[in-house]
Design a protein around this nucleic acid. Structure first.
Lengths: 266, 266
DNA sequence: ACCGTTTGTCCGAAATATCGGACGTCGGTC
DNA sequence: GACCGACGTCCGATATTTCGGACAAACGGT
């Protein structure tokens, strides 16, 4: 019951929506299993995975055994929990190396995180959500948890203001779900305020947001644009809100230079 | 027919060894598919994957569609090739973050690659093979191809001489397959030469090899040891063989310091 | 224009993988 | 020491997924 309620409901919805019958293919069970682990972001007991994904216990044990053998999963700790295994890392690395822009972004992100010493990220859109693709922690050792692969509402982020800047007011309204303008603490971002942020960002060539999802954090982001000028990704810093203005200006210049280098055909 | 011969044979062996019957579970087909993509390290046409893994064409199409939908795979280019998709990266990142030593090693490898400007790696054993876990390309832009997740015979590497240094001569002979002492160019490494390398490495606290698998490359490696003194991983540089001795000494000191920081309980 | 090859989809049959439930163990609690 | 819940394994039945082959479309070389 520790993380149950919502997940169970979700699983049941999934089951009724996608599977009128109780029986499913192993591969679909495995996909649900991996997605569940990614959402939980923690080693999880097999029985819990089975319950939360709506998979029969005996089936889940069978599948987990197969996946552990393939190194897709690993048994952890000795208590009966499982989590992702090394094979996922290998396949993920292959993916990163196979995408030209990401491969270049890795170099930039690593470089600016090291030289500036702050957490740097490379972000894109995934559907109507914002997504961190690369994250390099910087020298500060706090906030270890990577948000890689976690989808976030566009208005919650600095980068989001750049990633949709090819849309007009009406398109924005249709593209971004209305509820995404509500921050985790319940505050709501006014749409015209968001549009104004976008306008300023376009002229300035960067975005700064402070205390948006987190009261003590400032985000600085610069756009990576394709030859047509459309923002296809962003590169950004995540820094404490009390960072001096001079330091932030240096970071902004750094970001702009990196973003320019990453923009294809320029 | 372009990459067929050996792969077909391999697939048939696999089929006869693991599957007396023609029919297999979807999940096993998927595992074979992913392994095949990892071995090829390139976007591959569906029909080729089917042939080389011994999977019926219709089955492979069905599975690929499912996996593309889950973002495990991606259709590439517009020609009918597929390769790993973003989900693999997310799951791989979760794995890296979940393993304490690897998470720390990422910081070290990124740091020394950036400051020294040469390719740095973090390596371990996987069974009786050597394995690159982390690879940070350094400033030189040559040799982009990452070897992450590729298994290599232990004697071909500098790190290998550290990773087995808890074994005596007899144990080495039993642990490392005899054919692994033959280099890719056909030369053979004498066993006592290998043992002498190990001995020297243990006293010096690092290994240097030159022109081992590649005539123009030098590898420098330092051991990460557990509290009992056993080498559980290595951190290393891959540099041009004509790098000056002074520069190499700096790198060796850098590696030793990093390896020390990574060694648990010290 | 012709023909051989490759691609992707569709279908029915049957081999079998999934499922539910039972069973033995283990550890903690009262 | 008896009870309870969770863990992991095993087994037989059947609903279903895999498989082979057929087919149309696209391609490309001659």
């Amino acid at each position: 019951m520790k993380s149950g309620e919502a997940a169970v409901k979700q699983a049941e919805e999934k089951q009724s929506a996608e599977k009128p019958t109780g029986r499913a293919r192993g591969i679909d069970r495995v996909i649900a299993l991996m997605e569940h682990l990614h959402d939980r972001r923690a080693p999880t007991r097999i029985a819990d995975i089975a319950r939360d994904t709506g998979t029969p216990r005996s089936t889940m044990y069978e599948l987990v055994n197969t996946l552990v053998e393939a190194r897709w999963l690993e048994l952890r700790d000795g208590d009966g929990t499982v989590y992702f295994g090394p094979a996922m890392h290998y396949y993920g690395s292959d993916y990163l190396d196979s995408v030209d822009l990401i491969r270049k972004a890795r170099v930039e992100v690593a470089h600016i995180a090291e030289t500036v010493g702050e957490t740097a990220q490379f972000c894109t859109l995934d559907g109507d959500k914002y997504l961190v693709v690369l994250n390099e922690p910087g020298r500060r050792m706090f906030r270890i948890s990577s948000e890689i692969g976690i989808k976030v509402p566009i208005p919650w982020t600095a980068s989001g203001r750049l990633l949709v800047d090819h849309l007009d007011a009406e398109e924005i309204r249709r593209f971004i779900p209305s509820e995404d303008f509500t921050l985790p603490d319940g505050r709501r971002i006014a749409e015209d305020e968001f549009l104004e942020d976008m306008r300023r960002a376009r002229t300035q060539g960067y975005v700064r947001t402070t205390a948006l999802v987190d009261r003590f954090t400032t985000c600085l982001a610069a756009p990576v644009r394709d030859p047509s000028g459309r923002c296809i990704a962003t590169i950004c810093f995540v820094v404490p809100a009390d960072t001096t203005e001079e330091a932030q200006q240096v970071m902004i210049d750094t970001l702009k230079a990196s973003a320019e280098r990453l923009s294809p055909g320029r």
